[in-house]
Design a protein around this nucleic acid. Structure first.
Length: 569
RNA sequence: GCAGCCGUAGCUCAAUUGGAUAGAGCAUCUGACUACGGAUCAGAAGGUUAGGGGUUCGACUCCCUUCGGCUGCACCA
């Protein structure tokens, strides 16, 4: 089913062709203000600029050829040359009626599905996940859900940091003062303790430092004992990550960490050197980008002078593997802004290697504490993700208990999880990913304003109507538009289909979040103005259909953000 | 020093990528209602979009410049 925008754009395209303006973009935008109608076309002003003509004159020529009978009132020219459309209630009612029986709520799959590798989350083994991982994890998951909904094939890959110099210290600590019980109950905590103790010892004891470095070399050379310790540390860490991913309802298709590429690093360097793409400078094997001004004096080192490899090497091997195995049309990296230069280098290098896939670094800003500085605990450490999620659920539990003390404890617990996790996810996804944002419990868990609980509550109110409903629900009843509130709701509902794709244009789930908030707001207006259960006959049937579509759109939309809706709260 | 990102109401954020009088929420003030879940709704007030210049019918958006903040810049990841 075509969206409102597509329908108007098609009519506009015909009119432009008929009027002799076939080179103009047939684009329709939502009206900037409800006073002007529902949609607007700015083509006349663009054409006027191009042809040095009078925009209103051109607008009137376009209008003469514009056939929107049955869809819109006659288009009007306003201002500098805007063409405004006001959709007809009958048309809106018919279109909205189609949504009632459509699981996809009017959004047809992409005409040209792509295969996309989505690289996100990527925690480091032997370190706890902290709030810094929230954005990548939640943003990445949401983009995966949205891309899949739009018909693309998404391969999500958790490129965990399971290989690095920290393992020399972890292995040394493991051999000398491992606490097996602590490892059992809190594996990552114990691994962190080992790392820190060795680190502290190294500061005063050269022997420890030397031995730890030797443990690392042994690991890298394949020593069976060290390899076994490393493998166990990775699996124990992963087990804890998995608990968080399960809680967050986030799943990965692949978990190809850095270590997966170890054997590919040497050959890759040889290949690049042999092809003349890499050259030795100051003893290190480097890739130079002399043809790119921004990178002209910023080579990427792929093999150190001591023969060791770097994460640039691993990332290039990763791209090579992904291209060979999946031949994706795009690879998306959801990684923080500080790594922008690294990705510029990696992408430039990949292009030298002949990679044609669309490589994107999806940048995001930092999470700040209420003091507007990078969020830290009182002792100056990163705030743990597990602790954040636990506190969110705990706070939600208090709120639910306060509001609805009679619900069975088990149900309350489930609702607290949905609300607490939803609040954290929505706080992240409802803002522009580029801006730093201030983490505030009170704001994200508020039931007022642009928050997950507000949207969930709108859903719950609708479900409550259906619980009270007597005499069954006819989902096929025709939609009638009799009041401004019903009209506004119908338009909003029909705009779901044109909002979702916008998210992928610049990787901005906040556009969808914004839409859902506006939908909930519009619904509340409808809810106040249009009694549902107390109305009768065809009006009542129509309003029930509108309620049902709204509930499904809220649920589907929040679902695309990775957020669930409770039936009660 | 060079480069990138950012600067919007008291606070937290939008602005569909160059469109009309820059929009929401919180907080503040005024109203509605023993309520289809009031965890609501209607309204008021709040702005030189950091400052200055430029491009054009039109600029928060593009260009130049100043100021301020964050980040990165050869063998950590």
């Amino acid at each position: 089913m075509a969206t409102l925008r597509e329908i108007l754009a098609e009519r506009l395209a015909h009119a432009l062709a008929a009027a002799g303006f076939s080179d103009a973009p047939a684009e329709i935008a939502p009206a900037s203000d409800a006073r002007f109608g529902d949609y607007q076309a700015n083509a006349a002003m663009i054409l006027a600029k191009k042809n040095r003509a009078n925009p209103r004159q051109i607008a009137s020529e376009i209008i003469q050829h514009l056939d929107v009978a049955g869809i819109s009132d006659p288009p009007e020219i306003a201002g500098a040359g805007f063409i405004n459309f006001r959709l007809r209630p009958g048309f809106l009612a018919r279109q909205a009626g189609h949504l009632a029986s459509d699981d996809r709520l009017g959004r047809t799959p992409a005409a040209q599905p792509q295969r996309i590798i989505l690289d996100f989350s990527a925690p480091n083994v032997a370190k706890p996940m902290h709030v810094g991982h929230i954005r990548s994890t939640i943003l990445g998951d949401s983009l995966a859900r949205i891309a899949r909904f739009l018909g693309h094939e998404v391969i999500s890959d958790n490129h965990i940091g399971d290989w690095g110099t920290q393992f020399g210290k972890v292995i040394y600590g493991w051999k000398h003062f491992l606490n097996p019980e602590a490892l059992e109950t809190d594996a990552i905590g114990e691994l962190v303790r080992l790392y820190r103790e060795v680190n502290a010892l190294e500061a005063t004891d050269e022997t420890v430092k030397k031995t730890a470095r030797e443990e690392l070399v042994k690991l890298q050379q394949g020593d069976p004992e060290n390899h076994a310790i490393w493998l166990r540390a990775v699996e124990l860490s992963w087990r804890e990550f998995q608990k968080l991913y399960d809680l967050l309802d986030i799943h990965f298709d692949e978990r190809l960490g850095e270590s997966f590429y170890n054997s590919a690093l040497g050959p890759l360097c040889e290949k690049l050197a042999a092809a003349g793409l890499a050259e030795v400078s100051e003893g290190a094997l480097c890739l130079f980008f002399r043809d790119i001004p921004a990178l002209a004096d910023k080579p990427a080192i792929i093999r150190k002078s001591d023969g060791g490899f770097l994460y640039a090497t691993t990332d290039l091997a990763t791209i090579e593997h992904r291209v060979q195995r999946w031949d994706p049309s795009a690879i998306w990296y959801v990684v923080g802004a500080p790594q922008a230069l690294h990705f510029q280098q990696i992408f430039a290098a990949a292009r030298k290697m002949g990679v044609t896939a669309d490589l994107r670094h999806i940048v995001f800003g930092s999470i700040l504490g209420e003091d507007r500085k990078i969020m830290r605990t009182r002792s100056g450490e990163n705030v743990g993700l597990a602790e954040v999620l636990r506190e969110a659920i705990e706070r939600a539990r208090v709120l639910v208990t306060e509001k609805n003390p009679d619900l069975p404890a088990e149900e309350r617990e489930e609702i607290a999880r949905i609300i607490g996790l939803g609040a954290v996810k929505y706080a992240e996804l409802s803002q522009n990913r580029l801006t730093d944002y201030v983490f505030s419990w009170d704001k994200m868990l508020s039931f007022q304003g642009n928050t997950a609980p507000y949207l969930q509550n709108a859903y719950v109110r609708i479900r409550s109507i259906f619980r009270k409903l007597e005499g069954g629900f006819d989902g096929k009843a025709p939609v009638q538009i009799e009041s401004p509130a019903e009209r506004a709701l119908a338009v909003k509902l029909l705009q779901f289909a044109e909002t979702v794709p916008l998210v992928l244009e610049d990787f901005r789930p906040n556009l969808l979040a914004n839409y859902l908030y506006e939908l909930a707001d519009t619904f509340h207006g409808f809810y106040e103005a249009c009694p549902v259960l107390k109305s009768e006959g065809a009006t009542r049937a129509s309003r029930l259909v509108l309620c049902d579509i709204t509930a499904r759109t809220l649920s589907k939309g929040l679902g695309l953000l990775g957020i669930r809706c409770p039936e009660k709260m």
